[in-house]
């Protein structure tokens, strides 16, 4: 059944929200308000939004250092996200995690991860937990093309496959692992073909086409929920920004970046919706305004939130620590 107008507009609104959140984060990073470093997902909105649109609130997701989009798409609170990026007390992790280590367990978001491929063994464990608890949840991992060459990916995919765990592996192939092109680090062209080595289906989709992503993800999620096991989904996409904000990007040509600009997933979906007469210029402007007003609120919340007290660093390490612990 094709998606109705309301669903399509919601997909669009979410993609705009991710794009604008990332843009806002980039600006405030440049202004020195966000400490450390951040990795933006501009250009990859179709993947995050398309995939998460197939998930329920109680489904589990892990992501990477480039995870803002996934978290927003899973339904995170923009205020607490922004505050976390700013290192503030009211952030999701009270300022202990930052952009790369952010989570919201109330929506099944088991966390971003600062270690490439770090989320895959965890999501396999979440999948095993679902199977043992006999619920119909699913567990989904986002990771990049760079992660594919790490050992944990192999172990996780094999284990999920032998136990037919309700896991979906989503590789966002954005062509570069930091500075290293995918062609350099993989001897195969399509990462999804690796699925065959684990006895699971693998599919490559145009990761800048939100509806194509949504369709493939829906099939994978359905398979997982039905107890038929894991799927490897390759979303071919492109990160339109550097690996991190401030990346001089000497490893790729301007023409290449510009050519992907033409495939911008947000604008592309806007064109699709306009053609279907679902989106008008006026409606697009009002969606953007609405998103901006949410982001303004989030930003004010983050800016107004106090920094944690230095000694707050000593909270939250253990659930229980009795008998002779010392700082």
């Amino acid at each position: 059944m094709p998606d109705d107008k309301k669903t399509l507009l919601e997909l669009y609104r979410k993609m705009v929200a991710v794009r604008q959140f990332e843009t806002m984060a980039g600006e405030h990073f440049a202004a020195g308000e966000i400490p450390g470093f951040i990795h933006l997902s501009i250009g990859q909105e179709a993947s995050s939004v398309g995939v998460c649109s197939c998930l329920r609130k109680d489904d589990y997701v892990v992501t990477t250092h480039r995870g803002h989009g996934h978290m927003i798409a899973k339904g995170a609170d923009l205020k607490r996200m922004t505050a976390e990026l700013f290192g503030k007390r009211d952030g999701y992790c009270k300022g202990k995690g930052g952009s790369m280590h952010i989570a919201d367990f109330s929506i099944g978001f088991l966390g971003a991860n600062g270690v490439v491929a770090g989320g895959l063994p965890i999501i396999t464990g979440a999948g095993l937990s679902i199977k043992l608890r006999k619920t119909d949840q699913v567990a989904l991992a986002f990771f990049g093309d760079g992660a594919c060459n790490r050992g944990p990916v192999h172990e996780a995919m094999n284990m999920a496959a032998i136990w037919k765990l309700p896991v979906i592996f989503v590789v966002e192939n954005n062509q570069y692992a930091s500075t290293t092109p995918m062609e350099y680090s993989c001897a195969i062209g399509d990462l999804c073909t690796r699925a065959a080595g684990y006895g699971m289906p693998g599919e490559k989709v145009d990761g800048n086409d939100v509806l194509a992503v949504r369709k493939a993800a829906a099939t994978a999620v359905e398979r997982a929920r039905a107890g038929e096991g894991p799927t490897l989904l390759e979303n071919a996409t492109y990160r339109m920004k550097g690996h991190f904000e401030g990346d001089p990007q000497k490893y790729r040509k301007t023409e290449e970046v510009e050519s992907w600009g033409e495939k911008d997933p947000v604008e592309r979906f806007a064109r699709v919706l306009t053609k279907k007469k679902i989106l008008t210029k006026k409606l697009a402007a009002s969606i953007l305004k609405e998103v901006h007003s949410e982001l303004d609120e989030a930003l004010a919340f983050a800016q107004d939130s106090p920094f944690p007290a230095p000694e707050d660093a000593m909270n939250d390490l253990y659930s229980t620590m009795e008998g002779g612990s010392h700082a």
Binding site: L110, L120, I122, I123, T124, G125, A126, E155
Partner: peptide
Amino acid sequence: GCGLGAAMTG
């Protein structure tokens, strides 16, 4: 990782 993911989810 299996232990970890399971421990995080009940």
